[in-house]
Design a binder for these strands. Sequence first.
DNA 1: GTGAATGCAAAACCTTTGCAACTGG
DNA 2: CCAGTTGCAAAGGTTTTGCATTCAC
Lengths: 147, 147
Amino acid sequence: MSESASPVKFRPEEIPAELGGLRMTKQRKEVYCLLMDQRDHPTAQDVFIRAKERMPNISLATVYNCLEALVNHELVRQVNFDRAPSRYCPNLEEHVHFQDLETGAIHDVVFKKGININDFLELPEGVEVRELELTLKGIMPSSTKKN
Amino acid sequence: MSESASPVKFRPEEIPAELGGLRMTKQRKEVYCLLMDQRDHPTAQDVFIRAKERMPNISLATVYNCLEALVNHELVRQVNFDRAPSRYCPNLEEHVHFQDLETGAIHDVVFKKGININDFLELPEGVEVRELELTLKGIMPSSTKKN
DNA sequence: GTGAATGCAAAACCTTTGCAACTGG
DNA sequence: CCAGTTGCAAAGGTTTTGCATTCAC
């Protein structure tokens, strides 16, 4: 699981003008850096509020547009829990999400090494799985919460 | 996988006045029967349109209220794919959902017998999982589609 | 008769869109 | 100069809510 509390590592100035085929504008860099720095799975609103600190004129629509562009170019993942506002996650490694019902915090969880989807699901012969989204909710022991 | 095309088996008249602690009104019976009869994971809109055939005065808000009540009393499951409208499913056995990207149809998929969540996920010691939602998207071979 | 459920309309909420102004190459 | 992006406001789609009316015990 991860919820890395790192000092600011990513600065907009350091982001190249293009990333994964996407032209990185000032706003896209800002949004992307926010996600990379504070990997706490913020909503678009959360990103908007944080982005305004450094770019007071940024609009919520632009934040949505930036997030959509980043998601489409697979620089960021969109995470949905039920019908709650989407959250965004820059962790591109295969993982699923666990939400702590006590704190609301979302943690990344990885699959066991070497596990295959057919090892745990009864899928019919020949089905081709293109996307998988797994979300969990539950209680983290407080000893683990700090991680 | 299931997509049972059954003749009408459930009729509102046959539903008891109370189910799982929920008082079954005329509308709730209707909604519940629709779900039980046509197990195709309809949206609230779908249910509304179907329900109106037999209850022309039913309102969309009532359909939402009924579905919410049924979900809260665990008579029906709410299924979310991304941010698409919620779908509803009366299959209470543990299962996950697979959406065929070609037809849009949703199929129920079960876990391998005896499989435990810790067999495929790297969960930290002591975590208590309360809810699990797994959705898949992909392509079904046409030979399997008819099931 | 009384508490709960319905139906209607309006509101709430998240997200997308239209469009004029701006940006950056 | 021009395609693409922004910011703003308005619209969109899904779901919820307020409230008067109706229903069922």
